[in-house]
Simulated scan of single mutants.
Amino acid sequence: MGNQLKTAALLAALSGLLIAISYWVVGGTTGIIIGIAIAAATNLFSWYQSDRIALAAYGAQEVNESQAPQLYRMVRKLAEQANLPMPRVCIVPSASPNAFATGRDPEHAAVAVTEGIMQILPPDELEAVIAHELSHIANRDTLTQAVAATVAGAISFLGQMLSYSMWFGGSRDNERGGNPIGVLATVILAPFAATVLQMAISRTREFSADAGAAKLTRNPRALASALQRLEAAAKGIPFHGANPAFEPLLIINPFSGEAIANLFRTHPSTEQRVAALLELERELSSL
């Protein structure tokens, strides 16, 4: 419950940031009303389209059992064990090893894996990764992360548009309700603030999904090993198709090889996650 309250507060902060941006840029009551309208529309759109948005962002293609029998059966087996509806199964045409889940609820969910992750992980580790994604679905993290990504993307887009406006069209006149200082602050600070809030939301969910996967498979070490393998592979095979706004959906930070990007990781460190999994292994073995 603590994580859920924290996540709700962070989502509210993201929406509040959108409203604040509109207030400072447009000015007055009109700016607040426009900000509320943008926040409501963005949240509503991501609620109903979260699965399509995320899948399209990574070019994921849905497959059936005949097209990817081993993967499809693995997802079906784990979904049955977790008492979840069978999600759609998708493959991302990328050599970079990664995976994610999306959907507004378990009845509208999808699990996606890259071609690369199926090539480098042995079956028990791939199973652990899929169990992690199914845990996100069971915890309804997929909706939370997709909404956060969409709102953060809207904030960043607004910041970019304002930047272009300042360079090519000049700042808005104060008599028309605009605030040049607000515009400048938006361009510089809004994308950064949105990233920080996204990071906080994602980090509250990853440990819980790791634990859920370990309990589902009864094999915490398999997920620990998979995370270490994926971390190492990400340094050599960067995810060039990765959309930063949707990075929190992925099981591993796709920019692990970039020093600057590591300052803004949306995931807990792999070392922390592995340590937590090995501790859980000791607890499970003592039962």
Rank of each mutant, 00 (worst) to 15 (best):
H136P: 13
H136D: 12
I137G: 07
L143A: 14
T144D: 05
T144S: 13
T144N: 10
Q145W: 04
Q145C: 06
Q145M: 15
Q145E: 11
A146V: 09
V147R: 14
T150K: 05
T150V: 12
T150P: 00
V151E: 05
V151D: 06
V151P: 06
V151W: 04
A152R: 03
G153R: 03
A154F: 06
I155Q: 02
G159H: 03
Q160P: 00
M161G: 15
Y164T: 08
M166D: 02
W167N: 12
W167G: 13
F168C: 13
G169S: 15
G170T: 03
S171H: 11
R172D: 10
D173V: 09
N174Q: 11
E175R: 10
N179P: 09
P180D: 04
I181R: 11
G182A: 10
G182F: 09
G182Q: 05
V183S: 06
V183P: 00
V183N: 07
T186W: 02
V187E: 01
V187P: 02
A190S: 15
F192P: 02
F192H: 09
F192K: 06
F192T: 08
A194I: 12
A194M: 08
A194S: 15
V196N: 05
V196A: 07
L197N: 05
Q198V: 10
M199L: 03
A200D: 05
I201G: 06
I201Y: 07
S202G: 11
R203A: 10
R203I: 10
T204G: 10
T204C: 13
R205T: 10
R205M: 12
E206S: 08
E206N: 07
F207L: 12
S208R: 15
A209S: 02
A209C: 04
D210P: 03
A211T: 00
A214S: 02
A214E: 01
K215C: 03
K215W: 02
K215N: 03
L216Y: 03
R218H: 03
R218V: 00
N219K: 12
A224W: 00
A224C: 07
S225W: 06
S225R: 15
Q228D: 12
R229V: 09
L230D: 02
E231R: 11
A232Y: 01
A232E: 07
A233E: 02
A233D: 03
